[in-house]
């Protein structure tokens, strides 16, 4: 029952004296992001003390560099999760898009730029199918995207004949990731930055973004407000698909090859980043900045723990605990508010 949350003891009219109600809530939301950001700083500070290498420009760019793929996936998925959905197909979907990029550019000899665009659009197609299954066939997002995860995993292997596709003929392809338009900063990081700003604008300022929040807050009320919820859901999943495609290009450019089997598991890392960033899995709440911070926390942890020579296995354990703590703290804060 919601009645407990209505302010004021007797008449339920909002007390007129309390003029800062809305602003206080906004400040609280900011504070939450500050908290996530603060924990990122604390973790970073700890590693700086523990390891002399951590706080060097080289290491920081390498952290940023390693955030790119998970970051792309997480940003796209943020939209889906804010609608109250989930997308499990982003990991293997990414592998499929990487393979498609290889097929277009290496096997079919399509010009590189066009190939990249086609690969990204192919990701959009994957997302569109997800959206269609969720919005038109009304399958639960978990099931629809779980099925797509398996389909994409299989297709990536079938299309590539289970062998990596190498971009040795097109050295420019690797430059997408490792080139430095801005000296000292890999292009991949630059691309992530641009994409994040675009996504944040889209989520915060566009009609699509508003409807994304509205659908996640209350899908039925949104439908009854005369909004074609189905179409907008398809748009959101398609958008997430474009990010899958971009991630596919970024990972194959970084590796110099399309690895059809590298994808499974990325979806959970990306979802973890979204959740650590304060987006609610039940929908209606979340920000791109939060997701980016979430993704950074994951990379910083991975990087720092590696520098401290902590075994890979323990890194997983620590990441799991961080997710529990982050989400629990978020819930506790909300209950208090």
């Amino acid at each position: 029952m919601n009645t407990t949350e209505i302010s004021g003891p007797a008449p339920a009219l909002a007390p007129p004296g309390e003029t800062g109600g809305g602003r206080a809530a906004a400040i609280k939301d900011r504070l939450q992001q500050l908290l996530a950001f603060a924990s990122l700083i604390v973790i970073g500070a700890y590693f700086s003390f523990a390891s002399p290498i951590f706080f060097t420009w080289d290491n920081i760019t390498s952290i940023l560099f390693s955030t790119v793929v998970i970051g792309c996936l997480a940003v796209g998925t943020t939209f889906v999760i804010i609608t109250g959905g989930i997308d499990l197909s982003i990991g293997t979907g990414m592998a499929l898009c990487a393979v498609m990029s290889g097929v277009f550019i290496v096997n079919l000899g399509v010009p590189m730029v066009l190939g990249v665009v086609l690969a990204i659009l192919f990701g959009g197609l994957v997302g569109f199918v997800n959206g269609f299954n969720v919005a038109v066939l009304r399958l639960p997002p978990f099931i629809a995207t779980l099925a797509m995860m398996l389909v994409a995993e299989g297709l990536a292997l079938v299309i590539s004949d289970s062998t990596p596709i190498y971009f040795t003929e097109t050295p420019g392809y690797v430059k997408i990731s490792t080139g430095e338009l801005v000296p000292g900063l890999p292009n991949a990081v630059l691309i992530l930055l641009v994409v994040c700003v675009l996504a944040a604008l889209l989520l915060g300022r566009s009609v699509l973004g508003r409807y994304t929040y509205a659908i996640g807050s209350n899908e039925q009320a949104t439908e009854l407000s005369g909004i074609r919820v189905g179409r907008w859901k398809i748009a959101v999943y398609t958008l997430a698909g474009l990010f899958i495609g971009l991630a596919g290009v970024m990972i194959s450019a970084r590796l110099g090859s399309a690895q059809p089997a590298t994808g499974m598991g990325y979806e959970l890392q990306a979802i973890a980043a979204v959740v650590i960033g304060g987006t609610s899995l039940s929908g209606g709440k979340g920000t791109i900045l939060g997701t980016v911070i979430g993704a950074l926390i994951i990379s910083v942890l991975n990087n720092g723990l590696q520098l401290l020579s902590i075994a890979q296995e323990w890194q997983s354990v620590i990441l799991g605990v961080v997710i529990l703590v982050a989400v629990y703290a978020d819930m506790a804060r909300k209950k208090e508010a």
């Binding site: 919601n2 949350e5 209505i6 302010s7 008449p11 339920a12 009219l13 909002a14 007390p15 007129p16 309390e18 003029t19 800062g20 109600g21 809305g22 602003r23 809530a25 906004a26």
Partner: peptide, 17 residues
């Protein structure tokens, strides 16, 4: 509508508002 501002979260309003 009795609300401190247009930025108030809707659940904090009374039923009538």
């Amino acid at each position: 509508i009795k609300t401190p501002s247009e930025n108030q979260t809707t659940k904090n309003l009374s039923g009538g508002n």
